[in-house]
């Protein structure tokens, strides 16, 4: 069972790493534009709400958030170990629980947008 679980979290880590490497710079760029006060047209309420209300928009946002949160969880588990905290079972439960909560919240809010 341990090996099977490891394959799943490692698969999510690899897929999430590739996805975030490609798209997170653009996402940070959008937050940067918002920070300067130049809110991109399609991030205005009407347009972004319509995007998130469509099934394609929901699917894209969910896949990105799902892979990102599990990727981050797996790496943070290793970071905690690297900084000298040797309680892997506890840490693994904590980070994967947070990832699961993030996944559920993402799905919940996306489904609530209609």
């Amino acid at each position: 069972m341990a090996i099977a679980k490891k394959a799943i979290v490692w698969g999510l880590f690899a897929a999430g790493g590739t996805l975030t490497s490609f798209i997170l710079p653009a996402l940070i760029g959008l937050f940067l534009l918002v920070a300067t006060g130049n809110v991109p047209e399609n991030l205005q309420f009407e347009q972004f709400h319509a995007f998130a209300a469509s099934w394609l928009g929901k699917a894209c946002l969910f896949v990105v958030l799902f892979l990102s949160v599990w990727h981050a969880a797996h790496r943070l588990r290793v970071v905690v170990h690297d900084f000298g905290i040797r309680k892997d079972a506890l840490v693994a439960n904590a980070v994967y629980t947070v990832a699961a909560v993030g996944t559920v919240l993402a799905a919940f809010y996306l489904l609530a947008i209609s």
């Binding site: 999430g16 946002l61 990102s68 949160v69 981050a72 790496r75 970071v79 809010y109």
Partner: peptide
């Protein structure tokens, strides 16, 4: 990985 986690939860909050 902290940045990945931070931006993921920022987007979830935005949603």
């Amino acid at each position: 990985s902290f940045l990945v986690a931070f931006y993921t939860f920022l987007v979830i909050y935005a949603l």
